[in-house]
């Protein structure tokens, strides 16, 4: 039996022992992957962890706070290039990551200001403009982008006798888990509640004493911090960046991942990240059809499962939890 006996029980991160069980098993499986999986699997895993951090951030903004943003590539680029420059200056990786995140968060706040006045599609247009402006800035100023050759970034070092790839894998796994936990904590706290309140009914939220300015800007700052970290990790993973990697279609892919994974869901962010990484891999022979697959999936998701893959996942769990009753 799983009776809630105190208010404290209601606040537990993992409610059912069974949930804890399979989460532990998943984490152990992920930890063992470098020993059993091939190089390609490690590559994919690393990429999914990195991307899911960014998708989680954008899910906080788009899914939870309801501020539609299409400028993610801008924050990615800011994160990646700040990390690149800081790493080239010889800063330790942790510090450079933090710096990249904070730089993106700073620009997030700047972009957040229009959100105080604009809603829905209008905000989407402003953020879209921001994304393109950042791309153009990096493309035209060689001081920032490292010129035609792009910016070469020192890769993650090999640690504890592991290969370089495996070290990077563990580092991104660690970051992915840390950010997942932080996101779960954030959204179940007073702040997450305030974000959802702003999405559901901003006037009512304001009348209850939620400072719209502060929380909208906070949401922008936090989400761009995540995206900045995503960009920085991606830069380190690739070992090389140029502005072309952060064009508008990158924003769209992140947006698609948020929607397909499931709005306002942390698991959804991970599913969405896995989707946008795995689909191009599976259909690598038909590259030109990947956007078509994304588009069609979004349409199907919108019609049949508005909560995305996370909604499906939730229903599946509910089904097995209640089995054989329905």
């Amino acid at each position: 039996m799983n009776l809630v006996e105190s208010y404290k029980d209601d606040l537990k991160l993992i409610e059912k022992p069974w949930t804890g069980c399979w989460i532990t098993m998943t984490v152990i499986a992920l930890l063992l992957l470098p020993w059993f999986g091939n190089e390609h699997l490690i590559y994919m895993g690393t990429l999914i962890f990195i991307v899911s951090v960014g998708i989680m951030g954008q899910n906080i903004l788009i899914g939870y706070t309801g501020q539609i943003s299409l400028g993610q590539a801008g924050f990615l680029a800011i994160g990646a290039f700040s990390f690149g420059h800081m790493a080239q200056m010889g800063l330790p990786i942790g510090l450079a990551l933090l710096g990249a995140g904070c730089m993106a968060a700073f620009f997030g706040v700047l972009v957040g200001f229009p959100s105080l006045r604009l809603k829905g599609p209008y905000l989407a247009i402003v953020t879209l403009g921001f994304g393109i402006a950042v791309y153009q800035t990096f493309a035209s100023f060689e001081v920032l982008s490292g010129g035609r050759m792009g910016l070469v970034i020192p890769k993650f070092p090999a640690l504890f006798g592991l290969t370089r790839e495996a070290s990077m894998y563990y580092f991104s796994l660690f970051l992915g888990i840390a950010f997942t936990l932080a996101t779960y904590n954030l959204i179940s706290s007073y702040m997450g509640r305030a974000f959802v309140a702003i999405r559901d009914n901003d006037i009512a939220a304001e009348v209850l004493g939620v400072n719209l300015t502060r929380y909208k800007l906070l949401s922008f700052a936090i989400s761009s911090f995540y995206t900045g970290i995503h960009g920085a990790m991606f830069a380190m993973f690739m070992g090389f960046i140029d502005p072309q990697m952060f064009n508008f279609s990158e924003s769209l892919i992140i947006f698609v991942a948020v929607v397909i994974g499931g709005l306002a869901s942390v698991e959804g962010a991970i599913f969405g990240a896995a989707f946008v990484i795995l689909v191009p891999q599976v259909f690598s022979g038909y590259k030109e059809f990947v956007p078509v697959i994304f588009g069609v999936t979004v349409i199907f998701i919108m019609i049949f499962e508005p909560l995305g893959l996370a909604g499906r996942w939730f229903k599946m769990r509910l089904y097995y939890r209640n089995w054989p009753f329905r």
Binding site: L11, L13, N185, S188, S189, Y190, G192
Partner: peptide, 9 residues
């Protein structure tokens, strides 16, 4: 909020 300290809650 981030560290899940929920005394206030």
């Amino acid at each position: 909020a981030f560290l899940r300290i929920r005394k206030e809650e």
